[in-house]
Amino acid sequence: MKKLLLLVATLTFTLGMSAIVMADTPSNIDYKNMHIVWSDEFNGNALNQDYWEYQTGDGSQYGIPGWGNNEKQWYRAQNVTVGDGMLSITAKNENIAGKKYTSGRIRTWDGDNNKAKVSVGLGYVEARMKIPSAQGIWPAFWMLGNNGKTWPACGEIDIEESFNIASYAQGTIHFPSPTGADVYKYSQTNPEGYDKTGWNTYGVYRNGEELSFYLNGKEYGYFKTTDVGDGDRSVLNDDYHILLNFAVGGNLAGGEPPSGTLPLTMNVDYVRYYQDGAPAPTVKPTVKPTTVSKPAKAKIKSLKYKKKRKLIVKLKKIKGVAGYQVRWCDSKSFDGYEQKNTKKVKLTIKGLDKNTKYWVKARAYKKVNGAKLYGKWSAKKSKKVKK
């Protein structure tokens, strides 16, 4: 596997709020327009403890027995290994301290000094992973906030949670309600050809106003990180630290693994943190850049319900565009939306939930040097799906 040189080499990394705030999260990750601020490529034969800290035990020493999720394993440093260019966390059948299973958990946090070893702010965080599939397991790649508050006031971003034999990818956000209780929202995707037991990339992009989840560089989940009245979403814009763990059992694992299931291993090729903007070129460009105007604002001419839980969207044709992007959601704020690009001005949205009201909006795009240049969103239209 091709590995990158580490770009930052200090003991403690504070890579916080310096990213430029974007107007919208991208539909597809464009690595050419970002640069790596920090990464661990897991070269060598040992975990880099300048970046990572082991968390061991059953959570009791952190005040959260069962790690707050009724997990059944005892975490040990021995279950976390580095070799062959990857990190491996292995869950095993081993009896320790009254637990029937052992596994591993690491984080980019310094517990002794109560500060982050690696702190990530706005931008894009991604890991390339292979995840096992079996009843009773719960591997995860996620982040917790660094604001010093207790959960859920610190905020939590679950970039990929893989429950038991579930075939989909899932990203989840947690933030405090006005009363301090946990509010969580999630998005799932299971595109054709996706197999979590093979190599895939999982990522999250934050720009200070929005947050999107990505599978193999393609956006599948979107949430606002500004106030929509359901709690303090602003914590989702704070600096965070990264966690990787492989739980056995727990509230979402579907019970414990059947006999003979373990050992199983979660592999991680790399973890990378990007910010927007390509690295400064060493040679000044000699070609004058071409200026291309954005497409005109899109307009939805009609939105109609059709039998068998379908909606028909008709758009006003815009001259000189390559296509249109249509988004729909059962939330007016478009939390957890779905979307589709089309070259036509008519789109049929299928597989909707019955007796549910949906909001739809659209925007046009041009293609410039292989990238999409989007116009403004249309006004929202809504329609209820019946039987």
Rank of each mutant, 00 (worst) to 15 (best):
A77R: 03
D110F: 14
L144R: 01
N69F: 06
P132W: 01
Y168M: 13
E53H: 07
N93F: 14
K99N: 02
I157Y: 01
I64L: 01
C154F: 00
G57M: 12
R76L: 15
G66I: 07
G111E: 12
K149M: 08
I165L: 13
A91I: 04
I106V: 11
G83L: 09
Y75I: 12
K72Y: 05
G155Q: 13
V125S: 10
V80E: 10
T81W: 04
N146F: 01
K149D: 09
Y124L: 06
P132M: 03
E161M: 05
A77C: 07
T150E: 12
Y75M: 15
M143V: 14
E161F: 09
Q61Y: 02
L47D: 06
V118H: 01
Q73W: 04
T150N: 14
C154W: 00
G111D: 14
G111K: 08
W74P: 00
V118C: 06
K99H: 08
D112P: 09
G85N: 10
D50E: 15
G145L: 05
E161R: 08
D50N: 15
Y101V: 10
K99M: 03
T81Y: 11
Q61F: 00
W74F: 10
G57I: 10
W138T: 01
I96M: 13
G68W: 02
G171K: 01
W67C: 12
E161C: 01
G148A: 02
A91N: 04
S162W: 04
F42T: 06
A77L: 02
G85R: 08
Q73G: 00
K92A: 05
K99Y: 02
M143K: 14
E161Y: 11
G171F: 00
S60F: 06
K99C: 01
Q73S: 01
R107H: 11
Q78K: 09
I137E: 09
Y54A: 03
M129W: 03
G66M: 06
E53T: 09
P139M: 07
K100W: 11
V82W: 04
I157Q: 03
N69A: 11
M86A: 03
R107E: 08
L144I: 04
M129F: 00
Y62F: 06
I64Y: 05
N79A: 08
V80Y: 09
N48S: 05
M143W: 09
D58E: 12
K130V: 09
V118R: 00
G123F: 07
Q78L: 14
G63K: 13
S103D: 06
I157K: 00
Q49F: 11
T81L: 07
P139C: 10
T90Y: 07
F141C: 00
D58T: 15
G148T: 05
